[in-house]
Design a protein around this nucleic acid. Structure first.
Ligand SMILES: NC(=O)c1ccc[n+]([C@@H]2O[C@H](COP(=O)([O-])OP(=O)(O)OC[C@H]3O[C@@H](n4cnc5c(N)ncnc54)[C@H](O)[C@@H]3O)[C@@H](O)[C@H]2O)c1
Ligand SMILES: NC(=O)c1ccc[n+]([C@@H]2O[C@H](COP(=O)([O-])OP(=O)(O)OC[C@H]3O[C@@H](n4cnc5c(N)ncnc54)[C@H](O)[C@@H]3O)[C@@H](O)[C@H]2O)c1
Lengths: 209, 209
DNA sequence: CAAAATTTGTGAATAAAATCACGTTTTCAA
DNA sequence: TTGAAAACGTGATTTTATTCACAAATTTTG
C-alpha cells in the first residue's frame, strides 16, 4: 500500500497529462510532468514504477495509455457514486460542482433534516434522512460526504456505516469514531488548513526563530 | 522550518487540548494527546520539543500554558484577517462559518464580479472587485481565499498579489503561477481529495495487488 | 547502418520522519 | 525523607521517502 502523498501526486500527474492531451500532445516525458506538478523527474518515474506504469526509453509515455493506467489506479475507470449529507453551503457546493461531470465521480443525492432542503425532482435530488439507508442500498452507493454541523457529524457517520457506505469525506471539525475498521475516513478540516497557511506565511516573514 | 504535516499535527494537538480544557482538565499528558489525535506519544513530545514547548516530568503539560504556546506557533495569538474572492457556494460557506468566531481568524469581506452578490451592510460585506486593492491596503489584510471558477483563478491571484496579500488558500483546481516568491499558496483540491479516498477504499477492498 | 543523443527504470545512496529507549525529573505515599 | 512510579526530553535507531546515477533501450541523424 502506498502513502497518501504518493496517491495525491498520481492525481496531479493525471491532471497534468489531461491538460497536455487537450493541447493535442500524444506523448509526455517524466520531465514535463515533473515541471507541471513541482516534483523531480525521478520522483515521477519512481511513482509510476511502483504501480507498474511504464513508458518507452527515449520515447516517454503515450498520454492515452498513461491516462488509462492512472485512471485505473485512481478508480476513475468506473462510476463512483457519492451521497452528500447536510445540504448547507458546503454540501450544496459539492452537489452543484460542474467539474465532476467529466470525471467518473457522481453525486447521486443529498440528505438533510431540514424539510426546506428537500427536492425530489432535481438532477441530484435531496431527501429526508430516513430514506438514506434504503437509497444507499438500492443504488449501491459506496461513498458519503459529511457536511453537517460538528454536533451532528458522529450520528450521521454511524448512519452511513449502517447503510453500508465504504468511504467518507468528512468536513466537520471532529474526529469520527468507529470500531468498524473497514470504513475509510478522510478528514478535511478547513480551519486546520488555514492555520497551516498562517504558520507558513508567518515563518516566511520572520525566518529567524 | 518544519514540515507541513508537523504543523497540521500541532493544530490537532491544540484542538484536542481545547476539548480537554472544556472538560475542566488542567493538565494533559503526551499520551492523552496521542490517543486523541492518532499518533504516538513520542511523536507528540518530539513535535513539542522542536518548538521549545516543554512540560513537567511526571506532571505532563499545563493545558493553559500549552494552549498559549501552540496558539503562538499557529499565529492564533493575534487576529488574522482574510478576504474571500468569489462568493459562490464555497465562498459563502467560508464567510458564514460560525466556527471562526471563537478563533482568531476573521473573514472581513468578500469580493465578486456578480452585482447580485454585493452587500455593503452585512457583517462581512461583499464588494465589487475594483475595490479589492484599496480595501486590502486600508485594512491591512494579509490572507486571501480564492473561490472563483478555475478560469478566473489566475487573474484573481495576480490581483491579490498586487494588493499585497501574503498567503492564499486556493480552492480552484489549477496550479497558480507567479514569479513572486514571497507569496505562500496552499491548494485545496476537492476532486483530488475524493480520488484519494476512492483509492484507499478500493485497495482496502482488494488487498491483493 | 552505425554512432550519438535521449529518456526510461531501478538499485544504491541520501535525506527526512518516526519510533525507541533510557536517563532525568517530578510526584506521591509511607 | 526516602523509595518507587510516572512522564518528560532527547540522542540513537529504524523506517520511510526521495534523489542520485547509470545501464539498457529507443530514436534520431548523418
Ligand atoms: N463546489 C465543489 O464541490 C468544488 C469541488 C472542487 C473544486 N471546486 C472549486 O472551488 C471554486 C469555487 O467553487 P464554488 O462551487 O463556490 O463556485 P461557484 O460557481 O458557486 O461560485 C463562484 C463565484 O465566483 C464569482 N466569480 C466568477 N468570476 C469571478 C471573477 N473573475 N472575480 C471575482 N469573482 C468571480 C461568481 O460570481 C460566483 O459567485 C471553483 O474553482 C471550483 O472549481 C469546487
Ligand atoms: N463553511 C466553512 O467555511 C467551514 C469551515 C470549516 C468547517 N466547516 C464544517 O463543514 C460542515 C458543513 O459546513 P456548512 O457551512 O455547509 O454548514 P451549514 O450550516 O451551511 O449546513 C449544514 C447542513 O446540515 C443540515 N443538518 C443539520 N443537522 C443534520 C442532521 N443531523 N442530519 C442531516 N442534516 C443535518 C442542516 O439542515 C444544513 O442544511 C460543518 O461541520 C462545518 O463545521 C465549514
Amino acid at each position: 500500500m502506498s502513502s497518501r502523498s504518493r496517491i495525491l501526486r498520481l492525481s496531479r500527474y493525471k491532471n497534468a497529462a489531461l491538460r497536455l492531451k487537450s493541447l493535442n500532445f500524444l506523448k509526455v516525458f517524466s520531465d514535463n510532468l515533473a515541471d507541471a506538478t513541482g516534483v523531480t523527474a525521478s520522483q515521477v518515474r519512481k511513482d509510476f514504477s511502483l504501480f507498474g506504469i511504464s513508458g518507452n526509453r527515449r520515447g516517454g509515455y503515450q498520454i492515452d495509455e498513461l491516462l488509462t493506467q492512472l485512471n485505473k489506479v485512481l478508480g476513475k475507470d468506473k462510476l463512483q457514486k457519492f451521497i452528500v449529507v447536510g445540504v448547507g453551503n458546503m454540501g450544496r457546493g459539492m452537489i452543484n460542482y460542474p467539474g465532476f461531470i467529466k470525471s467518473e465521480i457522481k453525486i447521486v443525492a443529498g440528505f438533510d433534516i431540514d424539510p426546506s432542503k428537500y427536492n425530489r425532482k432535481a438532477d441530484a435530488p435531496v431527501f429526508p434522512m430516513d430514506e438514506l439507508t434504503a437509497f444507499v442500498k438500492t443504488n449501491e452507493v459506496e461513498f458519503g460526504i459529511i457536511a453537517v454541523p460538528d454536533f451532528a457529524a458522529q450520528e450521521v457517520f454511524e448512519r452511513l456505516i449502517q447503510a453500508g457506505i465504504k468511504g467518507v469525506l468528512n468536513f466537520a471539525p471532529i474526529r469520527l469514531k468507529s470500531d468498524n475498521t473497514d470504513i475509510v475516513v478522510h478528514n478535511l478540516n478547513l480551519e486546520t488548513e488555514i492555520e497551516n497557511l498562517i504558520y507558513f506565511v508567518n515563518t516566511k516573514v520572520n525566518p529567524a526563530e
